[in-house]
Computed example of a mutant assay.
Amino acid sequence: MNLTIQEVLNRAFLFLQQHHREPKVAEILLLHHLQYSKVQLLMELRSPIPQAVYQAFQADLKHHVETGIPVQHLTGVEQFYGRTFAVNEHVLIPRPETEELVQYVLGEVKQRSQPLSVLDVGTGSGVIAITLKLEMPSLTIEAGDISADALAVARLNAKALKADITFRESNFLEEWLNQGKQFDLIVSNPPYISWSQQDHLIDTVKDFDPDLALFADQDGLAAYQQIISNAPKLLAKQGCLAFEIGDQQGEHVKALVKNTFPKSDVVIIKDLNGKDRIVFAKKCV
């Protein structure tokens, strides 16, 4: 069988649709196995596909359909803010909503002239900390995660992308509480899904993303409570907090911030889909 790349793609699209999977997975996997750029793929659509590539591609495609394993776990990478990050089963796969958090934070910190220090809590693959540092090199950034395996991925990404960040293994803010350090901004995309919602998640998420990065007690608010309650010990004067949130959590997280920082200026920002996605607090101290 001497199929062209276009024919293989067409068959894969149909196969994925028939099994209620995202058709775009076909192109991502094929680019990975061919080691092509998108432009190369378009130029070679009429070319025959090498047999070894076809067999490896088919095996991954079937594995994805049968198990729900994320395509990012098969390729080992995901794109975030125009850069390629390594990912695996130990970290949350970066989402577009988190790019919106980073974009909003950058807009805020660029309004302040002096060099700023940032703490990224629950860094996972390091996408927030690394992107902030690369987009704004004057920032001094530290980042932590409770998972040593996640930190290994974050360090790998920071080294590959040449981002100077200090990483620490820490349960939320614990490692910094007794160091006397202060930060101008604490940012976090913490676990925020309630355990009661576990069965409602698609298999590509609930069966493969680490529970540590997904779920939190107290209806998904426990991580925010932990971070916010300890933030007064770490935030510098005029310090800020920035969180990614679940789309039903805006007012709850805002109330947690206001209870700890009554004079703060707190806003809830919607994502591109019109859902509450970011809570940002200024002038907390």
Rank of each mutant, 00 (worst) to 15 (best):
I5Q: 01
L14P: 00
Q18N: 09
H19Y: 09
V25F: 10
I28Y: 08
L29C: 14
L30D: 00
L34T: 15
Y36H: 09
L41A: 08
L42V: 09
S47M: 14
I49C: 04
Q51H: 09
V53C: 12
L61W: 05
E66W: 03
I69A: 04
P70L: 12
P70C: 13
G82Y: 07
T84M: 08
T84E: 11
A86G: 02
A86K: 13
H90T: 13
P96S: 03
L101D: 00
Y104G: 03
V105R: 02
R112N: 05
R112W: 09
L116T: 11
V118T: 05
G124N: 00
V127H: 02
I128H: 00
L132H: 04
E135M: 13
E142M: 09
D149L: 10
A150T: 14
V153E: 07
L156S: 09
A163Q: 02
E169P: 03
E169A: 06
L173V: 09
E175L: 04
E175P: 05
W176L: 08
K181Q: 13
Q182L: 06
F183H: 11
L185T: 07
V187I: 15
P190C: 11
S196A: 14
Q198R: 15
D203F: 06
D203W: 06
V205Q: 05
D217F: 02
G220Q: 08
A222E: 14
Q226I: 07
N230D: 13
A236K: 14
Q238A: 13
A242Q: 04
I245Y: 04
G246N: 03
H252Y: 15
A255E: 11
A255Q: 13
L256T: 10
V257P: 13
K258E: 12
F261W: 05
K263C: 07
I268G: 01
K270C: 08
D271I: 06
L272Y: 13
R277Q: 00
V279S: 00
C284Q: 06
V285W: 14
